[in-house]
Design a protein around this nucleic acid. Structure first.
Lengths: 235, 235
DNA sequence: GCATAATAGTGGTGTGAAGCCACTAAGAAC
DNA sequence: GTTCTTAGTGGCTTCACACCACTATTATGC
């Protein structure tokens, strides 16, 4: 196809939004901000905003910048989800937004406020309890679905925990997000066989019962794929 | 985060590109066009171009439009791959491109020319045999990887075949893309048990041996997930 | 017509990871 | 100590797949 000269088409607005997940008090939470300006002023929405071609070298860099501005966390798990763009998703005009989703331990976050009201909101099913601006309810639902399906066959839940954690804590994280109980024995076999964890010898976490062995995630660059899905099977 | 007024930032250019796959003569092929204009004039590249906010209601609609313009095929398998955007990927300035990948039967395609030279090019590994413009080599590699990993646990290869096909043809398609021989018996069990195919009773395809039963894909809307990955296991 | 090649399709045993569940281990509270 | 609570282990079963040998149905060459 020929490339038309670049002035021939108007450009759509281009933004980057974030779906930032954490697990706290036994529930999946997402970070939302209350919009200070129209459109959807006063409404809750996903954090994000316009990409700045002068400051941002790339879309990825823009997402990383917004993440630090919002949470102070520098290098959590950050993955591009999808791009949503249409004439009518924003009353200001044709916009496209590239959405990223991030996973982080709730302890690691400092909400900076950043002149906007930001807070963690519990996710029930694939939604929150109140209306979101723009098409953000749909985006959130897609992000939750992606999170769940990635949990089925990868290790990414470790990014929702602090650096050191126990196997029961990791299992509980999976159970919270997948919304189903998992068998302890099978879960441990699966995780140990994947060789993705490093035992912190002599380090344990005390609780109300027998102390649990602490582990650390071994290699943040590698993606562990389990040979089978964690839930029974699809359909 | 506050929404800055919309005039404060310049907008990046926004394009949509397509990675269109088919299988012909025992190899995976991708549709490429020879660029008629700078930048990268004369170079081969993925088909695509600027989104037109006046004509395109959404990014998805833009991808569907470009696909029809390029191949004449109206409703093949079309899925958003990823968005690539940076200051330096296009010499004309800061651009973002949302890339889609499409699967279609080679018989169904009519190359319309569309004032550009377009043709099918064999994919070896995750690349083609010559240099591509922009960052399209990287994009192609990502698309091939996504195609392979989706083939591991879904049915999507059926979209690379005509509406009616035999099980050996389907198996051959998987083998070509996954680049490994598959066991006939296991493959058939897997596909039959997934209940995704409809036997066309009394319809067979003749060849040089015993004729093969024809099948049709049952439900184009449903995503079939197989309980295990088709290759041994990852790593 | 008959042997042979070629491809389609079936069946049966072994395996590895998961399900299921009962068991032991090690701490705290009393 | 006993009991409660949570951590961790072990063993049998199940299920889908690998592996491979077998039968089935056509065309081809003589």
């Amino acid at each position: 196809m020929t490339a038309p000269d670049t002035s021939r088409y108007e450009k759509p607005f281009f933004t980057v939004d974030l779906v930032i997940f954490t697990v706290r008090s036994e529930h999946l939470h997402v970070l939302l901000v209350q919009r200070a300006e129209p459109p959807f002023k006063g409404c809750w929405a996903l954090p994000g905003g316009f990409l700045d071609p002068r400051r941002d070298d790339s879309v990825d860099a823009c997402a990383a910048r917004k993440l630090v501005e919002e949470t102070g966390v520098r290098a959590p798990y950050l993955e591009q989800l999808k791009t949503y763009g249409s004439r009518d998703r924003d009353p200001r005009g044709w916009t496209a937004t590239t959405v990223y989703f991030a996973l982080m331990a709730s302890e690691s976050v400092r909400l900076w406020g950043n002149q906007a009201e930001a807070c963690w909101v519990g996710v029930r099913g694939d939604r929150v309890d109140f209306a979101l601006g723009f098409d953000h309810a749909r985006i959130l639902a897609d992000a939750v679905e992606r999170l769940r399906s990635k949990l089925e066959y990868t290790h990414i839940a470790v990014h929702l925990l602090p650096e050191e954690f126990t196997l029961p804590e990791l299992q509980r994280t999976y159970e919270i997000i997948l919304q189903q109980p998992l068998d302890k024995s099978s879960f441990r076999r699966r995780v140990i066989q994947a060789d993705m964890l490093e035992e912190l010898i002599g380090r344990q976490r005390d609780g109300s019962g027998r102390p649990a062995q602490l582990y650390r995630f071994r290699d943040y660059d590698r993606q562990t794929f389990f040979p089978r899905s964690i839930s029974r099977h699809a359909r």
